[in-house]
Design a protein around this nucleic acid. Structure first.
Length: 281
DNA sequence: ACCTATGTTGGATC
DNA sequence: AGATCCAACATAGG
């Protein structure tokens, strides 16, 4: 499910709703999701811990707990975090429940079971957690300047679509927003990253920030299973220009939108506007 | 009914 | 280095 805007939405809402709550109990019906511990150990470690703060790095949610622990959560494709009153009916595909006192629960639901949780001491998260160590720059980090982005593109021959999806190059973009930013910047998804002109790099850089910011404002895109912590849809789906619009008219020129596979993922683009550079497929 | 697709990512293989 | 295929898994849609 979630890319940067969806994860950011969830993180902001969690801070509003469950900061300073204490995890009074934990249960989980999918042991593989809690990757760092056997279930009993995971439960023992997390029980009684207070949620001090919620952060995000890339698409990874980080709950800072008392006792110097951090609970890291990755929702992968279909994970959801819901905050529910205990009286609320059970959610479909619920895999884990963090009890927050008598009346409140943080529920981890996941249809496809790809989601993962890690529980580590804070120092280890910061210094040794490879999932975070490997991440590229945050699009909204002040140090992520145009020149920085330019360097990344100029040192990679890979197709720009694949580069944008590669979390070690730049973090936070997934299949939806990588398509959207390439449409915004009018770049064919198969263009080798190091063949993109300075002008287009600049446009892409601007587009990444603009589109992610707009999507966060709209509380994310619910084109499939994404929901926020109240179970509500994000509102950005109606603003999508290209993603999953195969065969529909391009908003710029009316040409039918095309779809190609790049690295096993679908890339949507306008074959007229986003012309591929000759000599490169 | 069968085939394909799905918001992720990590590993194997060429 | 980089591309491609496959793995985890469950469901929906053509």
């Amino acid at each position: 499910m979630p890319e940067l805007p969806e994860v950011e939405t969830i993180v902001r809402q969690l801070n509003r709703e469950i900061k300073n709550k204490t995890i009074t109990d934990f249960s989980c019906s999918a042991p593989k999701m809690a990757v760092t511990h056997k279930l009993a150990d995971f439960q023992r470690q997390i029980k009684g811990k207070k949620i001090l703060n919620v952060k995000r790095r890339g698409k990874i949610i980080l709950l800072e707990l008392s006792g110097g622990l951090v609970l890291a959560i990755h929702l992968r494709l279909t994970g959801q975090l819901f905050v529910r009153k205990s009286t609320h009916p059970q959610d479909p595909f619920n895999r884990a429940i963090f009890q927050l006192g008598k009346n409140l629960e943080l529920r981890f639901n996941d249809l496809r079971l790809f989601g993962q949780m890690w529980l580590y001491p804070k120092t280890q998260i910061e210094n040794n957690f490879d999932k975070i160590q490997k991440l590229g720059p945050e699009p909204f980090d002040k140090t992520f300047i145009l020149q920085n982005f330019k360097n990344i593109l100029q040192h990679n021959r890979t197709k720009i679509k694949a580069l944008l999806l590669d979390q070690s190059k730049i973090s936070g973009l997934g299949n939806i927003y990588s398509d959207e930013v390439l449409f915004y910047a009018v770049i064919h998804p198969n263009t080798p990253a190091n063949k993109i002109s300075d002008e287009k790099i600049r446009k892409l850089y601007i587009g990444i920030k603009k589109i992610l910011r707009d999507a966060i404002r709209a509380q994310g895109t619910s084109v499939d299973t994404y929901r926020d912590i109240r179970g509500e849809k994000g509102q950005y789906a109606v603003k999508l220009k290209i993603y999953r619009r195969t065969g529909k008219p391009c908003f710029r020129c009316g040409t039918k939108i095309a779809r190609v596979k790049i690295g096993g993922r679908s890339a949507h683009f306008c074959p007229k506007c986003q012309k591929r550079i000759m000599n490169y497929e």
